[in-house]
Design a protein around this nucleic acid. Structure first.
Lengths: 242, 242
DNA sequence: ATGTGTCAACTAACATGTTAGTATGAATGG
DNA sequence: CCATTCATACTAACATGTTAGTTGACACAT
């Protein structure tokens, strides 16, 4: 009768797998566990346990948690506890809004300023996606998809763009983990990517934005049903204790 | 001959003026000093000195500095020092790009979904701006300007939007401090705001975006000359030591 | 049985001690 | 006189000790 507020597991990826300062590595390890839903929404993070598991002191752990809190991945209740944030449909909607704003600006700029080399890279990526769809390699397709969008942002020449885009749509990325990819959807996605690349090829910013808007518009309707299907992952459903 | 890498002053606003945790207050105090250019770009932040000045220990100061580093306001050289970031024209350009992306999405949504009450608030704000221009109250006008944009973002119903917009254009805000407001520019700005509100009144998203794009486009050309006028504030000018 | 007050245990927040990496400058060799 | 080395001093990064606020359970009164 109490999976309501459960404790986190000790299956954090070892910090040796990452690089950078201790705090950075702890941050990445925790972030991965949260985004992969290995730490489910609502579960409690105990500093002491994390320190023991990872074999570090509380300083780097505190810094890591502070960053996660700033990004909204965890909620820290002062002097009491810190737990993994629940999903919130309003936050997810906001994330898609912000991401769309950035992606539209990105794709318009790239359509205007693209080089032949950049176009070739995009075309190559889409061809790779095509192969992966044929092979039914969804994991590979997911990666290629991510890379496609990252590539676009990189082509703007704005280095922080990817970082900001990742941050604003963190909740969306996490919710996306619950969506199992289907052959049909992957094929559709591929076509949407093709349309974007074609508009970029033609250096038509308006068409590129339209295609991107359509592409991004597919995600939210697929996430929304989750609120009914998995209500325990969302926030305002419970008036449990007290 | 060494204003090259100078030390920071002790004129931080007392943390008693802020609220929240110690770390939060230290963060706000430092941020204010950096954004107001009281800590000039390139100056070195010493943890010890900050601790003494503010009367706190290194923990909250470290957390505050970590946050400032994440936002790009300071650069920390591992094991060595942390200094206030220089201006970087490329970062400022990127900031304006990101801000424009967000403001355009914002204004389009508000133009679509606005209520009468929201329109009234915007109109009221613009009328206030008009008065302030007449009175030559530039400080007040600056605040009303900020409020105008904040209001728009608030009207979207997306709560993080303001935060994200502030963050991505932090460098721009800081650079803007070097621009002294002129009567002419304030009057122009007022007209641009009027155009935006009119498009929102007509619920015309495209016109609203056009007006907003024009409005935001005024800023960068006014910042760019600063790179020549105040080269010491910018980064890539020096190959000093070693 | 139920609402209330007290208390003990636990946590984040803060303070302080320790370590290790970097930069500076003096001493030395070319 | 200039380059190189090496020792020293200083810093951020990390570890650990301390404080104070919150929570939940239990006792007790109603």
């Amino acid at each position: 009768m109490a999976p309501i507020a459960d404790i986190d597991a000790t299956r954090l990826k070892d910090i040796g797998a990452f690089e950078g300062s201790l705090a950075q590595r702890v941050y990445l390890s925790l972030k991965e566990a949260i985004l992969s839903l290995e730490f489910p929404p609502g579960s409690v993070l105990r500093k002491g346990m994390i320190c023991d598991t990872l074999g570090v002191s509380r300083s780097p752990v505190s810094e890591a948690i502070a960053r996660l809190a700033a990004e909204g991945l965890v909620e820290v209740i002062p002097q009491s506890a810190t737990r993994v944030s629940h999903f919130s449909m309003s936050e997810i909607r906001e994330g898609t809004f912000l991401r769309e704003a950035l992606e539209l600006a990105t794709v318009a700029k790239v359509a205007r300023d693209r080089t032949e080399e950049q176009l070739a890279q995009l075309t190559r990526n889409v061809r790779l996606q095509s192969l992966l769809v044929e092979d039914g390699d969804f994991t590979g397709f997911y990666q290629a998809d991510e890379e496609f969008h990252a590539m676009l942002m990189q082509f703007t020449g704005y280095t922080r763009l990817i970082t900001v885009a990742r941050m604003v749509s963190l909740q969306v990325s996490r919710a996306r983990m619950l969506l199992l990819p289907t052959p049909g959807r992957a094929a559709e996605t591929l076509e949407e990517h093709r349309a974007i690349v074609e508009a970029i090829r033609d250096q038509d910013p308006v068409a590129a934005q339209t295609a991107m808007r359509h592409h991004l518009g597919q995600l939210l309707p697929r996430i929304e049903p989750l609120e009914q299907e998995r209500p325990e992952l969302f926030s305002p459903c419970d008036a449990r204790k007290r």
